[in-house]
């Protein structure tokens, strides 16, 4: 039965259900229980934003608080995955990948290929992504493109509670390493989520809104901004089709190409910095594979090529808005063939 729960609760429920189903599913991370070793409350935090709160009571042996030591425990999760477990490692903020990246891109990502197809590394690395939390340059980045660049990794970034639960369960069951990106500004976002366990396949985009005039491709928080843009455009009688990529590697280009064949116009939205991001990748692939279908140049909406600023005024300017996306759609609609 579906009920409305937050994205945060959807994550919690997915982990709970998978831990119950599969004894090899464990989780480790900094303060994922909280209060370990102290005299006060156990499960004091349940993660820095409370995502895993309550799981410790249900699975006391399967949640492991770690020292502040990302290289060691992200590596340990990968090593455990290579020796029979299905660990979920929480990196807290994806910005912290700088201190443990070797374990992710030189170890987890390479085992399968480097060992001649004889290794499986079913690890999920969960991390918060994205701006809007007034957390400034080192706790706000959208670093998804860094991971999609690397063969051997899968990258997921959902936008709704429903997708989050289904994609996380699928990621845990997946036999490859998955970087699971959770937008911290969506943690409180509520939506319909079935209580039972279910999966959403990796590599399949979602089309939350259909339209014939322009295709807007986005993911994560930007999927919501794209829908806002579509609402704005609808007031002008423009029917925008919004594609939520959900999974960035593998990337569902079929859905994008099919849509562009129909609309002839494309706006790529990304919260990642504009150079070599997901939007440029999608744009390039459309230009290469559906150039004939394009009626005008592709538009991209992304933050400026700067770090995430702290001042609320500046940060609000940094994050692409629904209005900016709608403007980009209007620009592409104003040009080219009709």
């Amino acid at each position: 039965m579906a009920r409305k729960i937050s994205m945060k609760m959807a994550i919690n429920e997915a982990i709970d259900q998978e831990m119950t189903r599969d004894p090899t599913v464990i989780m480790m991370g900094e303060d994922i229980v909280g209060g370990a070793g102290g005299e006060g409350e156990k499960d004091a935090w349940g993660g820095v934003l409370g995502v895993t709160k309550g799981l410790y009571a249900k699975h006391p042996d399967k949640l492991l608080d770690t020292p502040l030591s990302e290289s060691a425990y992200i590596g340990a999760a990968i090593g455990a995955a290579a020796s029979g477990m299905r660990p979920i490692a929480e990196l807290m903020f994806i910005d912290f990948m700088g201190v443990c990246f070797d374990q992710i891109f030189n170890q987890a990502a390479k085992f399968r290929y480097m060992f001649g197809g004889k290794a499986e590394t079913p690890v999920v690395i969960r991390a918060m992504v994205g701006a809007g939390f007034r957390a400034a340059a080192q706790h706000s980045q959208m670093l998804t493109p860094i991971f999609t660049h690397i063969p051997g990794l899968k990258v997921v970034c959902p936008s709704t509670p429903y997708d989050t639960k289904g994609l996380l369960i699928q990621s845990i069951r997946d036999n490859d390493p998955v970087i699971f990106c959770e937008h911290k500004n969506l943690y409180g976002f509520e939506g319909d989520v079935p209580e039972k366990s279910y999966t959403v396949p990796l590599g399949e985009a979602n089309v939350p809104r259909e339209g014939k005039d322009v295709t807007i491709v986005a993911y994560g928080l930007m999927a919501h901004r794209a829908l806002e843009a579509a609402d704005l455009l609808a007031k002008d009688g423009i029917e925008a089709e919004v594609i939520d990529l959900r999974t960035l590697s593998p990337l569902d280009m079929d859905t994008v190409l099919e849509s562009v064949e129909k609309t002839g116009r494309l706006v790529c939205v990304d919260e990642a910095n504009p150079r070599c991001n997901i939007a440029t990748d999608v744009s390039a692939q459309v230009a290469m594979n559906a150039f004939g279908a394009l009626k005008a140049q592709i538009e991209m909406v992304a933050p400026p090529h700067v770090p995430v600023p702290f001042s609320p005024v500046l940060e609000d300017l940094y994050i692409p808005s629904g209005a900016q996306i709608a403007d980009a759609a209007r620009r592409t609609l104003a040009k080219g063939k009709t």
Partner: peptide, 26 residues
Amino acid sequence: ADLSKGMMGANGILGAGAPLVCGAAL
């Protein structure tokens, strides 16, 4: 590497095996 023998790989990255071993030990 030969995981069937518990050999998790020679490693081109110096020191990278230690965290992996923590995972295998876990």
